[in-house]
Design a binder for these strands. Structure first.
Lengths: 184, 184
DNA sequence: TTGTTTACTTACCTGCAAGTAAGTATATTT
DNA sequence: AAATATACTTACTTGCAGGTAAGTAAACAA
């Protein structure tokens, strides 16, 4: 895979998660990379094509994370998931689901479909981690794992969003609260 | 205040929370209201003016809610807050903070400022309700009220966002979990 | 060495978003 | 009755977003 293609994907991801999908144009990418708009259309004919490939790249990173920690303790696996949000936090980005959710109904059907797949996978992943942790005594919580997973995910997702409005570091304290809540 | 002005504000609010701020244009409003784009510019010269007035309207509804329930039990006051999210849920809308957060860095400085004010007020309101409820024994939770408030708000905000991606009714179960978590 | 593929650029087009300026009909005030 | 304000419309302008089609230079393959 060419460098240019990767650079476009990477910059596109940053722009979507920093400023929003409908707020950036191919010009933002081509300008920064020193190429022409048509070069981006060469790799990704439509903006929705770019979106889909960015979503898939994120999905595949998620799968790798899942695989590489498969047999680790639940707490470590949860921390690995949370760490991906922490990285976003440090880069003043929201997560990809959070970035697209608000504009979801303005998106192409095939982009929506791609997002549904990833969202379901994230939920499944966190649910499994929480269920495993509860079973082996690492975690303590009252809700069923599926619901608790949703509560944890919403804390992380919206934590990234709200902190950019308030300007305060809400995320760090949220992250710590999640772990503490589950382990004590 | 004229009907048209109100209709513009109301439709603008719906569009922002259904499709996103950068995804709608004055055409979407003028078309539906049977007026011309310039009529909207007459009331709100710039799109950011419209945004600001929509945010202020929401803020003032929040303040009314706050006032009308001032001396009620904490649980009732919390339910009143949650109810505003439930209304959004039923209309397939996200909340205003959630709608703007993803595109925050693409917004005019004065819109950003307006959002900061409201976000701070929402957080303050929920914090007060939780603190009161903890003090008088209505609520039980380990975190300091300020942090617990943030956790509750993130559950609600992102609950609305995620359910539109997954297509499932995540919100209702989240809402119930919040109450149950606090009261048992 | 010729042909083909890759990775682009040049040069367009189309449409719409955002905004402005000037005009007009209808109330409202003086 | 005349002047003024209100609530718009008509008629623009500007710029950029999104996309296409055709050309081209370099790499590579037959």
């Amino acid at each position: 895979m060419s460098d240019t293609r990767q650079d476009i994907l990477s910059l596109g991801d940053s722009l979507i998660r920093q400023r929003g999908y409908n707020a950036f144009s191919y010009q933002d990418i081509s300008g920064k990379l020193g190429i022409k708009n048509a070069a981006i259309h060469y790799y990704f004919p439509k903006k929705s094509d770019l979106a889909i490939h960015i979503i898939r790249a994120t999905h595949s990173r998620l799968s790798s994370l899942e695989d590489s920690n498969k047999s680790a303790p639940a707490l470590q696996r949860l921390k690995a998931v949370i760490e991906t949000y922490t990285v976003s936090h440090k880069e003043n980005k929201v997560c990809l689901m959070g970035a697209f959710a608000s504009e979801f109904f303005s998106l192409d059907e095939n982009v929506q479909q791609e997002l549904r797949t990833v969202a379901a996978d994230i939920h499944k992943l966190v649910t499994t981690i929480l269920a495993d942790g509860k079973k082996n005594g690492e975690f303590r919580f009252k809700e069923v794992p599926k619901v608790k997973a949703m509560l944890v995910i919403t804390n992380l997702l919206a934590g990234l969003q709200i902190e950019r409005i308030t300007g305060k570091d809400e995320f760090t304290v949220i992250q710590q609260s999640i772990i503490k809540d589950l382990t004590t």
